[in-house]
Computed example of a mutant assay.
Amino acid sequence: MCTKNRVTKAARRQQLQKDLEEVKQLMEQATRKRVCDTLMVEQRKLETEIANKQAQQRRTAEESTELLKPATVVAPVATGYMVKINNYGWDQSDKFVKIYITLNGVHQIPAENTQVSFTERSFELLVKNLNGKNYSLTVNNLLKPISLEGSSRKVKKDTILVMCKKKAEHKWEYLTQVEKQSKEKEKPSFDTDTDPSAGLMNVLKKIYDDGDDEMKRTINKAWAESRDKQGKEEFDF
């Protein structure tokens, strides 16, 4: 039974990654802003779900490892709920991209309660047991690759500094690929007569069928405006 569950979870993660890759490909084809915005929302949802599953997998592996170790005195883990961090600032030097997160009192908890894990194109911050709460921040799809060995974190008064070591000393115009794509899609398109491809319509239908009421309203509105401009019949979801 356990083996079956592991296979199912692995297949789910693989399917999510395939969905994300297809959405990215369709974003490159899309020319209408509202369609691009809709795909951007779906991309962020998929990235968040993938990141959450990866974090859960890492935590499960860590818990399994801990069970094999002899009992030791460890820092207390908060029993409170998880708070997602949405606000942060960033800047850069020639060698580092620096992300600043403000958390009051973070410098007063044990250093081991503030953890950051890096991949070549992402990082995940976890702060445990700060005033009875846990805090997390996941940033995926960094604009350029980073070096895991050179990346680190520093804790200062009420602030966490995440330092991502650049693999190449190039200037980053954006922190993530998502930000870059979003800004580029906002630029005026001169090809206003091009229709979205059949593949784009298929993924929009899937997003519509799986989406909540707000998502459906967004897609309906985008399609209605596109239909009015082009004088074509309304697509029936």
Results as ranks from 00 to 15, higher is better:
residue 1 M to P: 02
residue 1 M to K: 08
residue 3 T to D: 14
residue 4 K to M: 13
residue 6 R to V: 06
residue 7 V to D: 12
residue 9 K to L: 13
residue 10 A to V: 06
residue 10 A to E: 10
residue 10 A to I: 02
residue 12 R to N: 08
residue 13 R to L: 14
residue 13 R to M: 13
residue 15 Q to V: 03
residue 15 Q to N: 10
residue 17 Q to A: 12
residue 18 K to I: 08
residue 20 L to P: 03
residue 26 L to R: 07
residue 27 M to N: 01
residue 29 Q to G: 02
residue 30 A to C: 05
residue 31 T to A: 03
residue 31 T to I: 04
residue 32 R to E: 13
residue 33 K to W: 05
residue 33 K to H: 05
residue 35 V to K: 01
residue 36 C to F: 00
residue 37 D to H: 03
residue 38 T to W: 01
residue 39 L to H: 05
residue 43 Q to W: 07
residue 45 K to Y: 02
residue 45 K to D: 04
residue 46 L to R: 04
residue 47 E to Y: 09
residue 49 E to Y: 07
residue 49 E to R: 15
residue 50 I to G: 08
residue 52 N to E: 15
residue 52 N to G: 09
residue 53 K to H: 13
residue 56 Q to P: 04
residue 61 A to W: 02
residue 62 E to R: 11
residue 62 E to Q: 14
residue 62 E to T: 09
residue 65 T to F: 02
residue 65 T to S: 06
residue 65 T to R: 09
residue 68 L to W: 01
residue 69 K to F: 01
residue 71 A to K: 11
residue 74 V to G: 02
residue 79 T to F: 00
residue 79 T to Q: 05
residue 79 T to M: 03
residue 82 M to N: 10
residue 82 M to I: 12
residue 82 M to K: 10
residue 84 K to F: 02
residue 84 K to T: 12
residue 86 N to D: 08
residue 90 W to Y: 13
residue 91 D to W: 07
residue 91 D to I: 03
residue 91 D to S: 14
residue 95 K to V: 06
residue 96 F to E: 13
residue 98 K to T: 14
residue 100 Y to S: 11
residue 100 Y to T: 10
residue 101 I to R: 03
residue 103 L to N: 05
residue 105 G to E: 05
residue 107 H to Q: 15
residue 107 H to W: 09
residue 110 P to F: 08
residue 110 P to R: 08
residue 112 E to I: 09
residue 113 N to G: 01
residue 114 T to D: 03
residue 114 T to H: 02
residue 120 E to R: 15
residue 122 S to R: 12
residue 122 S to F: 11
residue 125 L to A: 04
residue 126 L to T: 11
residue 126 L to M: 07
residue 127 V to I: 11
residue 129 N to C: 03
residue 130 L to S: 01
residue 130 L to Y: 03
residue 131 N to E: 04
residue 131 N to P: 00
residue 131 N to V: 00
residue 131 N to S: 07
residue 132 G to F: 04
residue 132 G to W: 02
residue 143 L to D: 09
residue 143 L to R: 12
residue 144 K to Y: 14
residue 145 P to F: 11
residue 145 P to Y: 08
residue 149 E to N: 13
residue 152 S to H: 14
residue 152 S to C: 12
residue 152 S to P: 00
residue 160 I to G: 06
residue 161 L to Q: 12
residue 165 K to L: 10
residue 173 E to A: 12
residue 174 Y to H: 15
residue 177 Q to P: 00
residue 178 V to Y: 08
residue 182 S to R: 03
residue 183 K to A: 15
residue 188 P to A: 01
residue 188 P to Y: 04
residue 190 F to V: 12
residue 190 F to E: 12
residue 191 D to T: 06
residue 192 T to K: 06
residue 195 D to H: 06
residue 196 P to R: 11
residue 197 S to K: 05
residue 197 S to D: 10
residue 198 A to G: 03
residue 201 M to F: 15
residue 203 V to L: 13
residue 209 D to H: 00
residue 209 D to S: 06
residue 214 E to I: 01
residue 214 E to Y: 02
residue 215 M to I: 13
residue 218 T to E: 07
residue 219 I to C: 01
residue 221 K to T: 07
residue 222 A to R: 01
residue 223 W to K: 01
residue 223 W to I: 04
residue 226 S to T: 03
residue 229 K to L: 06
residue 229 K to I: 02
residue 231 G to S: 11
residue 231 G to Q: 11
residue 235 F to H: 07
residue 237 F to W: 15
